[in-house]
Measured scan of single mutants.
Amino acid sequence: MDALKSAGRALIRSPSLAKQSWGGGGRHRKLPENWTDTRETLLEGMLFSLKYLGMTLVEQPKGEELSAAAIKRIVATAKASGKKLQKVTLKVSPRGIILTDNLTNQLIENVSIYRISYCTADKMHDKVFAYIAQSQHNQSLECHAFLCTKRKMAQAVTLTVAQAFKVAFEFWQVSKEEKEKRDKASQEGGDVLGARQDCTPPLKSLVATGNLLDLEETAKAPLSTVSANTTNMDEVPRPQALSGSSVVWELDDGLDEAFSRLAQSRTNPQVLDTGLTAQDMHYAQCLSPVDWDKPDSSGTEQDDLFSF
């Protein structure tokens, strides 16, 4: 819950932080000083300027060897085509990944977070970031790969997607708890209302004896509580940590079903599988986004697919 609360507080303090972009060759504004600060901008989305290598189908939802083989196929196909790589912007948030063309600003792909089953910074092609997700059109699994400016960037994108998945799962947990509370309150309110109706004398007997209905007592009954809980029953509950912020979080049926399955089948359902080692994760978390744009010590960066 700490990640969720800190993310909400950060967004309320400075929503404009989320509009910064990394990996864009110096076009961005001043960047936060450390990885923790940038992680807090996830709610509205972190932007990464990358190059799209392509996509291939895979048979399993996750796995280092599986993704490595898929990336190898994608890279080989991209090299064989001889075409310049498409420059894209990857927007990562707890909602998922939005992929747009840098030149036309046209939407290429919009992947809900619950469809993503794996992401990684490839070991062999260490400047490549990739994720595996279920197609929104059918049940097939797709591996999408992107060329980053350097290994640090690939690791940073991988960690960002993993963190977005974690925050999304926490949102789901909060929403589920809130819905259970509202359902319980609604049920209790309905029981109270039913009890009051059972003990209320029939209207005919009131008229016969000349008694008047006590409207004041009726007004004191917990009807307002019942209506408050039943009027918006169809509205999706939102985490309290975000009250007053500009973010509107809505959970669709697909996300609810997917996270429910994860909660039942996995020990740590909030953790998205990645190909990063503990050492890689520690190294990337210690980086400032400013470091992502620094040239690798191995030599001059080449803006070309064939540089790796």
Rank of each mutant, 00 (worst) to 15 (best):
G210H: 08
K150F: 10
V58K: 14
F129M: 06
A168H: 01
G8V: 08
H28E: 05
K87G: 10
L305A: 08
E64V: 14
T158M: 15
G82W: 12
F171V: 03
D198G: 06
P289I: 03
K83M: 09
V161K: 04
N232G: 09
E301C: 08
A284H: 00
I108A: 04
E257A: 00
V88T: 14
D198E: 07
S297N: 08
S135T: 05
V92A: 15
G24M: 08
W22Q: 08
D191Q: 09
T267M: 08
T267I: 03
A241Y: 03
T36D: 06
T218D: 03
A7P: 08
A185P: 15
L242I: 00
T230P: 03
A154M: 08
D256E: 15
D256L: 06
G190K: 10
Q163Y: 00
S260P: 01
K83D: 07
D198R: 04
L147V: 08
D304C: 05
G25A: 03
T77Q: 09
S140L: 12
A278L: 08
A70F: 07
Q285P: 03
F48C: 12
S112C: 13
A121V: 10
C119Y: 00
S49I: 15
L11A: 03
G210D: 01
A3V: 14
M55L: 12
A195L: 05
L31N: 13
N110M: 05
Y283G: 13
K204M: 09
E216W: 03
W172H: 01
V192P: 08
R13V: 11
I113K: 01
T41S: 15
F165L: 01
A80C: 11
E64S: 07
D191A: 02
K184L: 12
K84M: 13
S135M: 13
Q264H: 08
L141E: 05
S81P: 12
Q279L: 02
L305G: 08
A154K: 07
T56S: 12
P202K: 07
E301N: 06
S288H: 03
Q60N: 09
Q264V: 00
R27Q: 09
T225C: 03
C143L: 09
T231E: 03
V75W: 15
D198Q: 02
C143T: 01
N102Q: 08
Q136Y: 06
V88R: 13
K166S: 12
Y52P: 05
S93L: 13
G25H: 09
T41N: 11
V128I: 07
G210F: 03
F48G: 13
L272Q: 01
Q264Y: 02
Q285L: 11
R29I: 00
R13I: 13
Q279W: 11
A228D: 05
Y52H: 05
K127R: 12
S186E: 08
A76P: 11
S93I: 03
I71D: 07
L223K: 07
E177M: 10
L31T: 15
T300L: 02
L42P: 13
Q240P: 14
L206A: 09
Q155I: 05
Q302M: 05
K176F: 03
Q60S: 11
T158Q: 01
D101P: 15
R29N: 11
K179F: 05
A10S: 14
G63T: 14
W35C: 14
A185D: 13
S49N: 10
I132W: 09
Q240C: 02
I113N: 00
G8Q: 08
H137W: 11
D293L: 00
K62L: 03
S265W: 06
L215V: 14
K62T: 09
L53R: 01
L215Q: 00
N110S: 14
R9N: 10
F129T: 08
Q240D: 03
L251F: 02
W292L: 00
Y118L: 02
D304A: 06
E142P: 13
F306N: 00
S135Y: 11
Y131I: 08
T231Q: 14
S245V: 03
L53I: 05
F171T: 00
I74K: 15
A278S: 05
H28C: 14
K179C: 11
Q163W: 00
S140Q: 11
A18F: 06
P295D: 06
H282G: 13
I108H: 01
L90P: 12
N34Y: 02
L262M: 00
D273Y: 06
L272F: 00
S245P: 00
E109Q: 05
I108F: 13
N138Y: 14
A133W: 03
V58F: 08
H125F: 14
A145T: 15
M124T: 03
A7F: 13
P61L: 10
L206M: 04
L272I: 01
D273P: 08
A18I: 00
I116V: 09
R29Q: 04
H28P: 12
S245T: 00
R13D: 12
S265Q: 05
A78P: 10
L276W: 01
R151W: 12
L276P: 08
V75L: 15
K152E: 13
K87C: 10
A76N: 10
L17A: 15
S307N: 07
G189Q: 07
R27V: 08
T104Y: 03
S288F: 02
S81Q: 10
V111Q: 13
F146Y: 13
N102F: 12
P201L: 05
V58T: 15
L212S: 05
S260F: 02
T274I: 15
L4K: 04
